[in-house]
Amino acid sequence: MKILVVDDERDMQTLFEQRFRKAIREKEVEFAFAFSGEEALSYLNQHEHEAVLILSDINMPGMSGLELLDHIKHTYLKPPPVVMMITAYGDAENYNIAKQLGADDFLTKPVDFALLKQKLNINS
């Protein structure tokens, strides 16, 4: 399973790599990282249909996570991959917009990795 993580916080890469170090070691999961919406789109362009799951932050300079979501779900890839939104704003408005735009799930920061692993069916 290939997961694209989109967040402008660069330490997210280290965090994900450590949190999923066993799963990565056991090739259960593979990660790619993008640090902006634009970068995520160009990655998706180059690696079409590789990523089956996208984890995206909402609040990023430039293209926001919601815009990225809109792109992916409506104008970009067919069939669209699963998109989970991660945000520091746990407010209803963001949640509703994300759901409207077709987000498959919604997580808030600080990220509960146990919960995320559960959702991804990863046990290690």
């Binding site: 916080e9 965090l15 609040n59 920061k109």
Partner: peptide, 25 residues
């Protein structure tokens, strides 16, 4: 305030998760 909430949740995300990772490590 909203900016502050966002800006605090992000570091907290790392503080919480890295400390948990360290416990595991």
């Amino acid at each position: 305030t909203a900016g502050i909430a966002h800006e605090i949740q992000n570091p907290l995300n790392f503080v919480n998760n890295f400390s948990e990772v360290n416990a595991e490590l």
